[in-house]
Each structure stands twice: as structure tokens, then as C-alpha cells.
Simulated scan of single mutants.
Amino acid sequence: MSSTTNDVLYAVADFCLIPMGTGEVSVAEYIAKCQLVLEASGLKYKMHGYGTNLEGPWDEVSAAIHSCHQAVHAHGAPRIATDIRIGTRIDRPTEEVGTANEHKVKRVEDILQAWKNHDA
């Protein structure tokens, strides 16, 4: 097995931060606060309808999620629940792992396109 080039464990996380006890129907402003934190982190991230994908060194990913909690509490949320899934791999160089999500999505899109072209 290959190891990461500098022994830093690269993590791909999907997390869903849920502000609670705000008394509001929409939590969009709270999520926007978290997105500002992620933007400032310099990590690769992408928000989606039910959470955010976040990629980078494990410690930085964890720190960014921690900072999101701090920002959302500071914005007035008395409670936060967060679901986190984290994946790591060491069988490829870090440069390749860093683009893993893009390759996974592209692979599925390529399969779908091939099927559509075959059925046409």
C-alpha cells in the first residue's frame, strides 16, 4: 500500500450541521455562517441540499467543523447537532486522493452518459 507523501491523513467528510432551539423555521442564516467559516479555511468544500462535503488534512477538516459550531453558536443557536461521515484512504498518493470526489462523480456521470448513448 502507498502512504500519503507526508504522513498527513487526508480526509473526505460529509457533514450536516443542524442548528436547534432557534425558534425559526429556516436555518439558512446559520448555515451561511458555517459556509463563511469553510470559505476562510481554504479547504475544498461543496454545499449540497442536506449538508456539505469537505476535503483536506484530517486535523484541518475537524478544526473547520469545530469552527462552524463556534460560528453558529455565536450567531445565536443554543444547540447544534451534527452528523459526520469521514473517509480516508492511503492506497493512493495524496494528490490523487485530493481529487477523489471529483473522480467519483465524473465516473458515475460517464456511466450514465454511456448508457444514454447506448439506448439512443
Rank of each mutant, 00 (worst) to 15 (best):
G76N: 01
I111S: 02
P19R: 00
A63W: 00
V8M: 12
M20T: 14
C34R: 02
I80Y: 13
A28M: 08
T52M: 01
I31S: 03
A120P: 02
A13R: 05
H66C: 07
C34M: 03
S67L: 10
G87W: 00
S67W: 03
H66R: 12
K46P: 03
G51S: 08
A120W: 04
R89D: 14
H66D: 15
G23N: 07
E55A: 07
C16M: 09
E95R: 09
M47Q: 13
L17G: 03
N117I: 03
Y30M: 07
R89G: 14
I31M: 02
A13F: 09
E109H: 06
I31V: 11
N117F: 07
N101L: 10
G56T: 00
T5R: 09
E55S: 06
M47W: 03
A77M: 01
W115H: 11
D110N: 05
V27H: 09
A40V: 08
G42F: 09
T4C: 10
L38E: 02
H118Y: 15
N53F: 14
D91L: 06
D110L: 00
R85C: 15
Q35S: 14
P93I: 07
C34K: 02
G76A: 11
D119H: 08
A77E: 02
T22P: 04
V25F: 10
P57W: 04
R92E: 07
A100I: 04
T88C: 14
C68Y: 04
T82R: 11
R79P: 10
T99S: 12
V8P: 00
I90E: 04
S62H: 13
E55D: 12
A13W: 04
A74P: 02
V97C: 05
E29L: 03
A74I: 01
T82K: 12
K104C: 05
L9C: 11
V108N: 11
M1A: 11
E29D: 15
E39N: 12
H66T: 04
I65K: 02
H48M: 02
A71C: 09
G51C: 08
P93H: 08
G21T: 01
S67F: 06
P93T: 05
D83Y: 12
V27W: 13
H48C: 10
T99L: 07
S41Y: 10
W58M: 10
K44L: 15
K44I: 15
A71L: 06
L36D: 15
E55G: 03
P93W: 08
T5A: 15
V61I: 05
G56W: 06
E109R: 12
T5K: 08
W115F: 10
I18N: 13
G51V: 12
I111W: 09
V8E: 14
E55L: 11
E109Q: 13
A13P: 04
A63Q: 14
S67C: 09
V8W: 05
T99P: 02
A114E: 03
E60P: 01
A28C: 12
K46M: 14
L17P: 00
V12F: 08
A114Q: 08
S2I: 07
R85G: 15
A11W: 00
G87E: 11
A81W: 08
I18F: 06
D14R: 04
T82L: 13
E39W: 12
D14H: 05
D59C: 03
